[in-house]
C-alpha cells in the first residue's frame, strides 16, 4: 500500500493504539505493524515525529524510565487525546462511509 494513503490517518491509528494501554515507540509501531498485517510500508523512524506532534498538541503525555540501562519513553493518552480520538474516529467513519457509497458495488 502506498505510504501517502496513510497521510492524515496516522494520528488516528496512533491515538487508538495508545488509548488501549500506555506504550513506548517500538511497541506502538509493532502493534501498528501487526494489526495492519504489514500493509503500511513507511519507515519506522517517521512514526516518532508523529508521536512528538501528538504530544505537542496535548493529546498524549510521555514519561521516561530506565530499561536495560537505556532511557525509554512511554506514551499515554490524555483527556484531550481521548476527545480527539473520539472525534477523529467519527470523522473516519463518515469518510469511510462516503468512500464506500461512491465506490458502491466495486468495494
Amino acid at each position: 500500500m502506498r505510504p501517502d494513503l496513510l497521510k492524515g490517518h496516522l494520528d488516528l491509528l496512533l491515538l487508538s493504539i495508545i488509548s488501549e494501554a500506555p506504550a513506548h515507540g517500538y511497541a506502538i509501531i509493532d502493534q501498528l505493524h501487526r494489526r495492519s498485517e504489514e500493509a503500511f510500508a513507511l519507515p519506522e523512524g517517521t512514526v516518532y515525529p508523529a508521536l512528538h506532534r501528538l504530544e505537542d498538541a496535548g493529546f498524549v503525555a510521555s514519561t521516561t524510565s530506565r530499561v536495560d540501562g537505556r532511557s525509554r519513553r512511554t506514551y499515554a493518552l490524555t483527556g484531550d487525546g481521548r476527545h480527539a480520538l473520539a472525534e477523529r474516529r467519527q470523522e473516519w467513519l463518515i469518510f469511510k462511509g462516503a468512500i464506500n457509497a461512491v465506490l458502491g458495488e466495486q468495494v
Binding site: 519507515p43 519506522e44 517517521t46 512528538h52 506532534r53 505537542d56
Partner: peptide, 18 residues
C-alpha cells in the same frame, strides 16, 4: 534499514515542529 534514512527522519522531525 527499517527505521529509514537519517535525512528523511530528520526532515520529518523538522516538518512536525510548530
Amino acid at each position: 534499514a527499517a527505521f529509514g534514512p537519517p535525512a528523511l527522519v530528520g526532515a520529518r522531525f523538522r516538518a512536525t515542529r510548530t
